[in-house]
């Protein structure tokens, strides 16, 4: 039963992440990101300690709220994926399938397969925003997805994190979201857009 719940949650995570990276409206992206982060927490077998679980959920909601506030005060437009959501969904699905492959790691694992699969999918989805993001919001969203994916990989391989680890992971997510807000607000103050200009290319050479 828990496996089925975990599998369903993993699909929700991946679908939400696809929404997050594909949305042109940052508000939709935040909804997807928050949903993915919240759902990530429950993909574990056994489920984390209730307090740790609650903290991770609150941390994910707070991270989303920080980004929401940023968007509310600046600009809700963000750079969407150039490939379109079907391409992103297919890439994520492929990564998900690879993660489910039982022979991927020829070894015993302590965590559920669904976590590994969702972790791979999130990491794949986060690569483009992290490397090629031109605006702060998209960069921060990619970084949060990357951290969620890494945390899922950790759950899938090493099992449910300890409460202390859950605590630090939640703090890390809040910190990244807060730092993203700071960068985004300053970028908006400078240029009137969320552009940060760190994507590779000629612009980077300024």
């Amino acid at each position: 039963m828990i496996e089925l719940i975990g599998f369903g949650a993993a699909i929700v995570v991946v679908a939400s992440a696809v929404l997050a990276v594909s949305a042109r409206d940052a508000r939709a992206g935040i909804v997807g990101l928050t949903l993915a982060s919240v759902t990530t927490v429950v993909i574990a077998d056994p489920l984390p300690d209730p307090i740790a679980l609650a903290f991770r959920v609150v941390a994910a909601l707070f991270a989303g709220f920080l980004l929401w506030v940023t968007i509310r005060e600046t600009d809700a437009r963000t750079g969407s994926t150039a490939l379109g959501w079907p391409a992103e969904a297919m890439a994520a699905g492929a990564a998900f399938a690879i993660g489910l492959a039982p022979s991927l790691l020829e070894t015993e694992r302590a965590g559920p397969d669904a976590a590994l699969a969702a972790g791979f999918a999130l990491i794949i989805l986060s690569v483009v925003p992290v490397v090629f993001a031109r605006d702060a919001f998209r960069l921060g969203m990619g970084l949060l997805l990357l951290l969620d994916g890494a945390a899922l990989l950790r759950i899938g391989i090493a099992g449910t994190p300890t409460p202390l680890e859950q605590l630090t992971l939640g703090i890390l997510a809040i910190g990244v979201a807060g730092a993203t807000s700071v960068v985004a607000l300053n970028a908006f103050a400078v240029s009137g857009t969320l552009e940060v200009g760190i994507a590779p290319g000629p612009e980077d050479e300024r």
């Binding site: 970084l143 951290l147 950790r154 890390l172 990244v176 993203t180 940060v196």
Partner: peptide, 22 residues
């Protein structure tokens, strides 16, 4: 803008570091 870019790079480096470490 230069400072914003630096901050964005710093943020990216920190988060990527965390992902690799995890």
């Amino acid at each position: 803008a230069r400072g914003v870019r630096s901050a964005a790079r710093e943020l990216r480096a920190v988060a990527v570091t965390g992902a690799f470490a995890l």
